[in-house]
Design a protein around this nucleic acid. Structure first.
Lengths: 217, 217, 217, 217
DNA sequence: TATGAATGAGGGTTCATTCAT
DNA sequence: TATGAATGAACCCTCATTCAT
């Protein structure tokens, strides 16, 4: 059975000394990012991690489960980081600003992990432990809801002007779309990160900020 | 050996009667979209298309080439459709509006093709005919430049207000990011298309339109 | 799909020239008999048959299906041979005599095939094509019914005396048990064939023959 | 290293409280019978027995040794039971009768153990402790000789008529063949036990009994 | 142009066994 | 005596590709 320890909140790169599981996750991260999941063999991961082939299956039950565990870790790290950075916001609008920056920060620092997450999301037909799937889905929802909640706070505290069209959920979704779209541009088409961060922030402020808002469509 | 006819501009779904090549492309489109490229076998495609295994290789030289041909067709269709719809714009801003709508229109009508395009972009390590690769890259650039050009036109004709930060290229890139991010949300996470279209349009107008613009970070 | 040709009545050793399928069946027969099904690898069979690994799976779909095809061939050969030899009997009793002799004849000439059949019967948990399974079961029934019918004929023509205990089905079953038990003794414990044939015939005559019968139990 | 205790005469199911070794043997018996030796993993046995993987190897040195120990136990139990029941016979013929009944009694009460014994006999290529192999072979010989001896006694005491063909060894072998053949029919082909017992007894009496004997081929 | 039997390298996974504890 | 994390050789099967027809 997949180890429960694998699903708790600690990032898999912070432990000392590095156990086999951590080594496997590290090796798989760089290999999946470089070559893609399907082009990476279990043997390659094992070789890079310095463990036997069987050890990977022993711990993760299948190569695909490993991918889902990694996706979960990635989203969890992003979620945690975002939550921490957002905690210091003095208004809903600033919270959104920090949410966006946290995403780009993660994108700059852990591009491999985000790339794997994007790849994995795009293929729906993999067979993984149902528990992992539902955990991942739940985390995805929570990550989006965090942004929705910030927008609601901004509407409450007046830092965000009411929308003529769409609810907070839609606005949050739109912002998230621009974030993942930017990640896709950066990771898949090698666009630069900085201009996209500026655009995401500009678009968000235009769409939200009370002081700069007018009417559209 | 790769047939020249395969790279010309006609959509592969409009011919009558449906030849083997078209049948293959059709079958591959739905299978790649449903199961992903790597999870789809040549035999499955052959079975669904009603041809022999060897026929696919005979026409496309390799499974990966087939994928790139499909990606190219997809982007080319999107590009052509967008160019046609944008042609009727009376201002740069309206051109951007139509560009966005054309994307969402394609997303609504050909979700499978766009999904395959997204999947394929995310994996860099495939070996395809160099000609196909460069053709695809060039098309990608042209598709982005069309949007950049529209923004420039808007700046010229006054329908778009000058930016305090970033050039037309950056703004176009930001908009495209939001489009592909929205496609990702729709295709991979099953979000609804309509609200995202509204958000994309709202964001674009806020960012661009002369009448509604103020100041931002 | 498993070739239909594989299930027809011709023995797989008589064709000229020897096709790949026949070569595989030949190689598998001697290897399974010598080392047992589970101790024999597909590679070994392929090597001995002079074909590629994939060719075996291509034709038989799985290693286990190959085993069932072989079991079916064996029982079918035995059934056909028995039917032909029994055809010349002038009485039911002589028919039983020839049935027993046909079994021992096959045991002497095709020990490998019978050994594999015995081995396969003893393990119930293999996953084979359901069609093969039911075909094999049906053949098994027919082979036993042939003997039952001979006993009935003997009762009718007076060559076999009526039983005080048990019906023709039970008697036939008892005789078959002694045949397969003898095969087991010969093939697994290396007992000699001749004495067992004599004993089987003696037991059958004692149990059946009108001239030699008295009372028992 | 193989424990001597494991090879002594006590049945492995009678000890109280049930130690690990007994639990392993119990678990292995039902699993081997249900799925076959090769389809059963050490982990499954360990799980069912409530012990660790390593514990099984620790006690039995290898999975195959475990099988041979079980085969030995089975044949030993059968031998002991038969010897005890036969001890009360008042004639050689009655001894044979009790021998046959003891076999069927064991078949009815311990079908799993007999099935495993049959399976194991059919595959010659396993590598077990040579001591275990020779012990098993010796036991097999003694079990057959017991029957041979009963036949000789019957010839001496007049309960069994002299044979026109074959010696006591051959007759005993023929009877044993019918016993194991019947076990095969019952265990592998799900035939009923009772009719086969009747047939075995009938055949034995016909072949042996002084009062009912005539002449045969 | 089209076929499909045949290929064979390579893959993920299994599983009996080991060994430090 | 007992454990179970770790091993790694070996296995069955997959599947893109070839080629004689």
């Amino acid at each position: 059975m997949l180890k429960r320890r694998m699903l708790n909140e600690q990032s898999f790169k912070e432990m000392r000394p590095m156990g086999k599981v951590e080594a496997i996750l590290d090796a798989a991260t760089s290999l999946f990012a470089k070559k893609g999941f399907d082009q990476t063999t279990v043997s390659e991961i094992a070789g890079k991690a310095g463990v036997a082939n069987g050890t990977i299956i022993y711990h993760f039950k299948s190569k695909e489960n490993l991918l889902y565990v990694m996706s979960w870790f990635t989203l969890n790290s992003l979620h945690k980081r975002t939550r921490m950075e957002v905690a210091g916001a003095s208004s809903g609008l600033e919270g959104v600003d920090l949410y966006v920056r946290a995403f780009y920060g993660y994108l700059g620092e852990q591009p491999d992990q985000l790339l794997i997450y994007l790849q994995n999301s795009a293929v729906s037909a993999r067979h993984a432990d149902p528990l992992l799937l539902s955990n991942l889905q739940a985390l995805r929802t929570r990550y989006l809801e965090m942004l929705t909640e910030l927008v609601r706070e901004g509407l409450d505290d007046g830092s965000i002007a009411p929308f003529e069209t769409g609810g907070p959920e839609d606005v949050a979704l739109g912002i998230q779309a621009s974030l993942f779209g930017a990640a896709w541009m950066v990771l898949c088409h090698h666009q630069e990160l900085k201009p996209l961060l500026r655009e995401s922030l500009a678009a968000a402020y235009m769409r939200l900020a009370a002081e700069v808002r007018g009417a559209a469509t």
